[in-house]
Amino acid sequence: MTKRKFKIGPYLLVSPYVLFFLIFVAFPVLFSFYLTFHKWNVISPMEYSGLYNYEKMLHDRLFYKSLINTLYFLAIHIPLQLVFSLGIAVLLNTKIKFSSFFRAAFFLPFIVSGVVVTIMWQQLYGFNSGLINRLLTDIGLDRIGWLTTEKMSMPSIAIMATWKNVGLYIVLFLVGLQTIPKYYYEVADLEGATDWQKFKYITLPALNPTIFMVVIFSTIGGFSLFIEPYVMTGGGPLNSSLSSVLYIYKQAFDFYHMGYAATLGFTFAIFILLVIVLQKRFLEKNY
């Protein structure tokens, strides 16, 4: 009896996961694929539609728009994120006082809900009485239509997202910085290297794995961009801040085009995996 119990034990332990995996991962992936060949509004019966959803997607201006918007967001967000998190981490690593206070301050926006940050920045970005525009007019510059112009809506959201997440990446870079042996810098000092040289030839190469991680994390985060445009701009003006996830959400829950939304989700997911694989190739080559 005890012998049998011992053997079945491990299976009992992993059974919750297997069940979970079947219901919330395996089934959805297969069902999602199945849905892409159907029209369905949840209420009336599902209707087979062949490749209709795919054809529709290929001619859908908003599909491309949302994809380009998301890539545009990443193109601004990732460099900003890298420069600021690495820069601040290097400064914090210089044996200054209160470094844990500073670290805690930069980390604060990261732990707070995106909804809070978005509501807050919506006011900061306000055209007439927003704090940022008031600062600009105080020093004699023109107001900027942060959220009200097509040109600025996505960059504004990218700046905000950088502000929100930079704390996490600062901490990751600090962890990376602490793994660099001190004597590397001591030797460089003896050779008379400048700060910039030390940064370029010691710090940066040693941080490559962290940089890689930061790029991948912010790519995944960027592709899930939803609540920020949803609350701030609703995807506007003129769909200039419509992100991929927001578009899926709108198709599914504003229009109840479940088949089409699944098609979009499926395509975006493959696209995301592709981008990440490419980044991996590119970054690993540069190690």
Binding site: L35, G265, I272
Partner: peptide, 27 residues
């Protein structure tokens, strides 16, 4: 099957949630 489950976990972590969002709602 232990290693198999381990790989499934790694695979699932890389799976973008965009793909499961709609089907999970339907579930």
């Amino acid at each position: 099957g232990r290693d198999f489950i381990f790989y499934i976990i790694i695979f699932t972590m890389t799976l973008p949630f965009q793909i499961t969002l709609i089907p999970n709602y339907i579930t």
